[in-house]
């Protein structure tokens, strides 16, 4: 575990994974999309709308998997001060929010023809809506501090608090849903489960694979990006420091250090 704490080593592994993840994702999309959209037969109940499932289920899967990865990363960051775990969580969060949003929208587009309405307060839909808010909260909190390091820790704590709450929220919403809507027509509401058929499973698994490898490939890109951002910050700081060493007056010109001013006037 601690082997990966070293950014160089971590990135060596990540960069080695990258071409494989990117390649597999592209290949799986190239095979999966035509099957999902063209060759797979329409479902006997859901007709052609079953094709929505081939983007909906992978999005929902990524929405949950990414939160799991973020929770693991946040825990590793808070317990072992593992910097790369934090970067992985931070780099994943926007993707998690996008895929939760996609799962919600594609779910609504499937619900309108199947349920006759864009939105029902179905347990699963409602839980995903709340998951979406949790992602937004994480992003907003990580972004709200002047000092980015503080934002990291606060967001990591929030992520863990959220992960403790997700099962409670899900259980509450499911219970609330049965309380209020005992007779909702669940026409294939379980999407995959109710119609386990080879013709559906093949495109579904291909797309699941394509989405998952896509996530890992883009995660590596985003990790490189996050590391560079940290390096740029450090370079800026050391630049200021060297300038100050050569020419003390330069420091004042580069940026006003509020802690320094009163001391200077006292002298």
């Amino acid at each position: 575990m601690h082997r990966f704490a070293n950014p160089t080593q971590f990135m060596r592994i990540a960069n080695a994974i990258y071409p494989w993840a990117a390649g597999l994702s592209v290949i799986l999309f190239l095979i999966g999309l035509p099957i999902a959209l063209i060759t797979s037969p329409p479902d006997y109940q859901q007709s052609e709308t079953v094709r929505i499932m081939y983007v909906h289920v992978p999005s929902a899967w990524l929405a949950l998997m990414i939160y799991g990865i973020m929770a693991g990363g946040s825990a590793a960051f808070l317990i072992w001060r593992h910097p790369m775990a934090n970067l992985a969580a931070k780099a994943s969060a926007p993707m998690g929010a996008v895929f939760t949003g996609l799962a919600l929208i594609t779910g609504m587009l499937w619900g309108q023809p199947m349920w006759g309405t864009f939105w029902v307060w179905d347990g699963r839909l409602t839980s995903f809506l709340i998951l979406f808010f949790l992602y937004l909260g994480y992003l907003a909190l990580g972004d709200a501090f002047e000092d980015s390091e503080r934002g990291d820790k606060a967001a990591a704590i929030l992520c863990l608090v959220g992960s403790v709450n997700i099962p409670i929220i899900h259980f509450s919403v499911e219970w609330w849903n049965t309380l209020h809507q005992p007779s909702i027509v669940k026409l294939g509401g379980d999407g995959v489960k109710s119609t386990v058929d080879g013709s559906i499973l093949l495109p579904l698994f291909l797309m699941l694979g394509a989405f998952t490898f896509y996530y890992f490939a883009v995660l590596v890109l985003r990790l490189r990006s996050e590391l560079l951002a940290a390096k740029i910050r450090n370079a800026r700081m050391s630049q200021v420091a060297t300038h100050a060493a050569i020419d003390p007056a330069a420091e004042g010109r580069l940026f006003v250090d509020s802690a320094r001013l009163p001391r200077a006037s006292a002298e």
């Binding site: 709340i130 909260g137 907003a140 909190l141 709450n165």
Partner: peptide, 18 residues
């Protein structure tokens, strides 16, 4: 944080649903 109050509601209200 800046805008702490609005942020707080975004963080906490989802957790109040149960």
């Amino acid at each position: 944080t800046r805008r702490g109050g609005v942020l707080l509601s975004l963080l906490i209200l989802p957790l109040y649903i149960p």
